[in-house]
């Protein structure tokens, strides 16, 4: 039996699978295109629902790969994968070749490019940022100000940017944005206690156990008002503040509001990495462009190709908790496959 595995992607899913398989005695080669591990968590500040520091999760991941039978190849990309019976030959742009018994794809997600929602003016108006930008600023310890250097007095959050939106080809829910909006509104309210927070949503999907409590807390204690209505148009005022137009569907009235900062809660989508691997391996994809599991109930980590497994948000949007559990299931699936080859 070939006891080696290539894991593509050193995010939450990839690292968790690698560490479990390493514990089981397999040799794991992790190929990561970036310099650092962590995937999207690498630049995240705090995590919902308990506001723990994302650095703690990163530290957990760093510790997990410090074992002899895990080898990390940072700044490396897969260029080709071929199959010889039950052995996969994986080649990289660094001229490395790995002959392994199984391949795991854990390429994660790409945050939705908010420039595609042109009506929100991201990339054009100075004071329109995304939830990812906000996390990065917080993580770098930057002061949150308008681009004119003023503390914001009114901040609006737009939910479902690039999610549940047929216009951009994403009909699915990205699952994490609603609660991220609540979390970020609370963080901003803590930072600017006198400021007003507004969240514009179409409906709030508070699926986690603690999420409803978090949502209520934002309304009761953190000056956050939730307005049921999608923002239709964003413009810039002369003073660089932002004018937004929306419909408050509960009061049945159109609404025009001036805010100092607009945060777009961007969803998840599949990027070039996943597309490239699907092309190389001829994997099936879902209509939403995620990698299709063999069976959504019984073989959720098995791709349409024998010996190629999938884990994490390359399958569908997931929270970090769900990604961890999904990764553990993938590790067991790979172990089972290799034992029965």
């Amino acid at each position: 039996m070939n006891k080696s595995i290539v894991v593509i992607g050193a995010g939450v899913a990839g690292i968790e699978v690698a560490s479990i398989l390493a514990d089981m005695g397999y040799n794991v080669f992790i190929i990561e295109k970036n310099k650092n591990i962590g995937g999207n968590v690498a630049f995240w500040h705090h995590l919902f629902p308990n506001n723990r520091s994302a650095a703690e999760v990163r530290e957990y991941m760093n510790q997990k790969i410090k074992v002899p039978n895990i080898t990390l190849f940072p700044n490396t990309e897969v260029t080709d994968i071929s199959q010889k019976k039950n052995v996969y030959v994986v080649r990289t742009n660094k001229d490395a070749t790995f002959e392994v018994g199984a391949v795991l794809i854990a390429t994660g997600f790409t945050p939705f490019d908010a420039r595609r929602k042109e009506e929100y003016g991201y990339g054009i108006y100075d004071n329109v940022i995304t939830s990812v930008d906000l996390e990065k600023k917080l993580e770098r310890g930057e002061n949150i100000t308008t681009t004119q250097g003023m503390a914001p007095k009114r901040i609006a959050f737009v939910h479902c940017v690039g999610s549940r939106d047929a216009k951009v080809g994403h009909t699915y829910c990205s699952k994490v944005c609603c609660i991220t909006g609540v979390k970020q509104a609370i963080e901003m309210s803590k930072m600017f206690p006198d400021a007003e927070m507004y969240c514009f949503y179409m409906d709030l999907r508070m699926h986690g156990l603690e999420y409803e409590r978090f949502y209520k807390d934002a309304q009761e204690n953190y000056n956050t008002q939730f307005i049921r209505g999608r923002v239709s148009e964003v413009s810039e005022n002369k003073d660089k503040s932002i004018q937004l137009k929306a419909e408050d569907t509960l009061s049945g009235l159109p609404l025009k509001m001036k805010v100092d900062l607009l945060v777009l809660l961007v969803g998840m989508e599949q990027g070039k990495d996943s597309d490239k691997l699907c092309d190389i391996l001829h994997l099936h994809k879902t209509p939403e462009n995620f990698i299709q599991p063999q069976d959504p109930h019984l073989q959720g980590n098995v791709s349409s190709r024998q010996g190629v497994f999938i884990a994490g948000t390359c399958i569908q949007p997931m929270t970090i908790n769900e990604t961890m559990q999904n990764a553990r299931s993938a590790a067991l699936e790979i172990n089972h496959y290799l034992l029965h080859l």
């Binding site: 420039r115 042109e118 991201y122 990339g123 054009i124 108006y125 100075d126 810039e236």
Partner: peptide, 10 residues
């Protein structure tokens, strides 16, 4: 207004 953003859209 960021000209680079405008150019991307145009």
């Amino acid at each position: 207004m960021q000209n680079e953003g405008l150019k991307n859209i145009w």
